[in-house]
Amino acid sequence: MGILDKFRLDGEVAVVTGAGKGIGRAIAIGLAEAGASVVVSSRTQSDLDAVAADIHANGGEALAFAADATSNDELEKLAEAAVATFGKLTIWVNNAGGIPDGTPRYLTRTAEENFDAQIALNLKAVWMGAKVAAAKMADAGGAIINISSRSAYGPQVKNGPYGAAKAAANSLTSTLAVELAPAIRVNAIAPGPIPTENFDECMGTDTDEKREKLLGMIGIPMGRYGDPEDIASAVVFMASPASSWVTGQCLYVTGGR
C-alpha cells in the first residue's frame, strides 16, 4: 500500500453527529470524498437531507438520520441504522457540541440548568456515543474520533462550562483509548477559532468587520481563522490507516494558537 493509499477510506462506514452544518458537514463530506459511506446525523432533518444530497451529487453514499446526540436511545437507533443500511460501522465521529443557547457565561454566573446542558452536550454525549459505537464495532475494530476544542486548554473567561466539558472529554478520550485497544482507536481533535454559525452567535461576530477585529485580538500565528475543511482533513487522517499507530491523542488544529 502506497502512502497516499493509507488515507483512503474505501469500504468504511462512518457516523457523524452534529453533521447538519459547519464543521460536522465538512467532516461528513470529507469522509465521503475519502471513500467512506457516511451516516449524517443531527436534530434537523432538512439540514441532513442537504448534506446527504451534496454527498450523493459527488458520487458518494450517505444516509440522513435525525437523532438527538444527548439521548442514548436515539444514538442506539442511529448506530443500528448505519449497520442496517451499510452492513457495518467502523468510524464514529462525536462532533455534536457547542454552547446550547449561544450565551457564553462566567462559571460563577452559570445557573445549574445551563451548566448541566453544557455537560450533557459536550461530555455526556461523547461518552454515550463512544459506548454505542464500541458495541457495534466490537472485535472487528474501528476508529472513534471526538471533536474537542482549544477551549479545553487553560482558563476560559466567560466560557468556563464549555472549556471544562471539553477538557473532560479529552480525559475520556485517553481512557477509552486504553480500554478499547487494540481493536478500536480513540482520538480527539481540538479546533481553534472557526467562524461557524454557533461561533458567530456566541462571539457576536455576525459581520466580516467584527470577525476581523476579533482575529486581531486573538493573535493566531497563521494569520487566519480556521475553515471547517481544516478539521475535516484531520478527521480523515485519524479515521484512516495512515494513523493506525495513533490512539489516545488530542490533535490541536488551531493555527498555532
Rank of each mutant, 00 (worst) to 15 (best):
223 G>I: 00
218 I>L: 15
232 A>T: 04
157 V>A: 07
143 A>P: 01
175 T>F: 13
50 A>N: 11
237 F>K: 03
157 V>Q: 09
160 G>H: 00
225 Y>W: 06
134 A>F: 02
1 M>F: 06
81 A>P: 05
59 G>N: 03
119 I>T: 07
97 G>Y: 05
226 G>N: 06
42 S>V: 08
170 N>Q: 11
23 I>P: 01
42 S>Y: 14
88 K>Y: 13
219 G>P: 00
93 V>Q: 05
105 R>D: 10
3 I>K: 13
55 I>A: 08
135 A>G: 03
212 E>P: 01
129 G>K: 09
36 A>C: 04
249 Q>G: 10
18 G>D: 09
141 G>S: 02
253 V>I: 15
140 A>K: 15
159 N>A: 15
89 L>P: 10
81 A>D: 12
176 L>Q: 10
14 A>V: 08
249 Q>D: 12
193 P>A: 10
31 L>I: 09
191 P>Q: 06
195 P>S: 01
247 T>S: 15
177 A>V: 11
146 N>M: 05
190 A>Y: 09
207 T>Q: 03
237 F>Y: 14
251 L>A: 15
235 V>W: 11
79 A>H: 12
232 A>Q: 03
245 W>D: 02
216 G>N: 11
186 V>T: 09
113 E>A: 05
212 E>T: 04
76 E>C: 12
79 A>C: 15
50 A>Y: 02
174 S>I: 11
123 L>Y: 11
85 T>I: 02
218 I>Y: 06
165 A>Q: 09
189 I>K: 02
49 D>N: 13
57 A>L: 04
177 A>F: 12
85 T>L: 03
216 G>V: 00
65 F>V: 12
11 G>W: 00
160 G>R: 00
100 P>I: 13
221 P>C: 08
215 L>S: 02
156 Q>N: 12
71 S>D: 15
192 G>T: 07
101 D>H: 14
28 A>I: 03
239 A>K: 04
235 V>C: 12
169 A>M: 15
145 I>M: 05
96 A>K: 12
242 A>V: 08
234 A>V: 06
130 A>Y: 05
248 G>S: 10
121 L>I: 11
251 L>H: 11
104 P>Q: 12
